[in-house]
């Protein structure tokens, strides 16, 4: 739980520092909130691959995995940390 929270904080920081977007909470629907357009999505994929040294395969590219910061953190935790 604490680990996922740390991941959420890192991802929120990425949105703020690199995409210049404030995400109100880890459960905010990024697509509904207009925060995840196609270019931001592509930048997010590159960031996750570089930041966490992981490869996102085509099978992983389910947009539902990336709808909220909490879901992205859970995805990264599963793939990167194996938990």
């Amino acid at each position: 739980m604490a680990r996922n929270m740390r991941l959420c904080n890192r991802l929120t920081q990425f949105f703020r520092d690199k995409l210049y977007l404030e995400v109100p909470s880890p459960d905010t629907d990024l697509i509904e909130a207009g925060l995840l357009d196609s270019l931001n999505f592509a930048q997010l994929m590159v960031h996750i691959e570089q930041e966490f040294a992981m490869h996102i395969s085509p099978e992983d590219l389910e947009f539902d995995h990336f709808r909220t910061i909490a879901k992205i953190a859970a995805f990264v935790a599963t793939r990167w940390l194996g938990s």
């Binding site: 990024l30 697509i31 509904e32 909130a33 207009g34 925060l35 995840l36 357009d37 196609s38 931001n40 999505f41 947009f63």
Partner: peptide, 13 residues
């Protein structure tokens, strides 16, 4: 349908 955020959703908000 849009996989990502749409122009309309941003304008509405």
């Amino acid at each position: 349908p849009s996989k990502t955020s749409s122009m309309a959703s941003v304008a509405t908000r």
